[in-house]
Design a protein around this nucleic acid. Structure first.
Lengths: 151, 151
DNA sequence: GCTTGACCCTGTAGTTGCTACGGGGTTTAG
DNA sequence: CTAAACCCCGTAGCAACTACAGGGTCAAGC
């Protein structure tokens, strides 16, 4: 199977397949006499493993670990489980953050569309003086002025 | 105000401030006699605008638009509103995708922890033969074999 | 006066996960 | 025999930073 077909059947971009090979996620495939990549069924399965992992939001590094764990005859299911749980936690965290964002945006958009004149609630929300959560300036060392501004 | 303080009060990394200047999101600030950046209150407000925008998930390009709309005396609130609504839609989409991922992962993790032996449900899910949604191979053009594999 | 350390400067390269390009070679249908 | 469709390689680009290396500045303490 040539690269184009391998890419199509595993649902990823042709250049992505070469990229996975370049970073060592996919083994270097056989070559035809004219230098074309020739993928075995196993290669394609591995590629599908990767794309499915990506669909589930695993990073390429995590997928690398999963592949390694998978090939380990010592069968370390608990490590796989741990990796998946950690990853799930991260996704849930991200969902929470995005939901918070969405909520705030929705709120702002609603109040904005009420008064469609002079003041825009969305811009106001962005310009607002609310100080960022926790941050101290780096000890201004008795910062005497800064009067010598030029140009 | 020097860069370190400006960064701290607006809640972003010092190098990020320089980055925003480099890409033209933040105007080039005044300089002290010794070449240090000297930020005005307006500069810092603008920086805060940017960081707040980022917190709401706007891209730097979107923030650039918001800043431009904001400075427009012709007051085009509807454009701001449109941008925010589009952005909200994207965030909601992302939340949906991530929630789907999380759901599938949770399902897989649960079934995996049941049988903590030979077969790992998580790896199985990744190795599974389920073909990717919609994808046709690129017309194998009667692809005659590929028998000439070498090396 | 001199050192120490915190701060600042510039420019460049790295990160993740691709995607796109230029400039070529190969294969096969018509 | 030509044109289209496929493949090769290497490099550069994207977003949005972050992290150096290799220097300069400045105030305080000894």
């Amino acid at each position: 199977m040539k690269i184009g077909e391998a890419a199509a059947t595993s649902g990823c971009h042709l250049e992505t397949v070469r990229y996975y090979e370049r970073i060592g996620l996919l083994p270097k495939p056989q070559r035809t006499g004219s230098g074309y990549r020739a993928y075995s069924d196993d290669d394609v399965r591995r590629l599908r493993f990767i794309t499915r992992g990506r669909e589930l939001g695993f990073s390429l590094d995590e997928i690398r670990s999963l592949l390694q764990l998978s090939s380990d005859p010592g069968l370390s299911c608990s490590e796989v489980d741990q990796l998946a749980r950690t990853h799930l936690g991260e996704i849930e965290q991200r969902v929470k953050e995005l939901s918070r964002m969405a909520k705030e945006l929705r709120r702002t958009i609603v109040t904005c569309s009420k008064d469609q004149r002079k003041d825009c609630a969305i811009l106001d929300a962005l310009w607002c003086e609310k100080s960022p959560t926790t941050n101290s300036a780096p000890k201004p060392r008795k910062s005497r002025a800064m009067t010598d501004v030029h140009s």
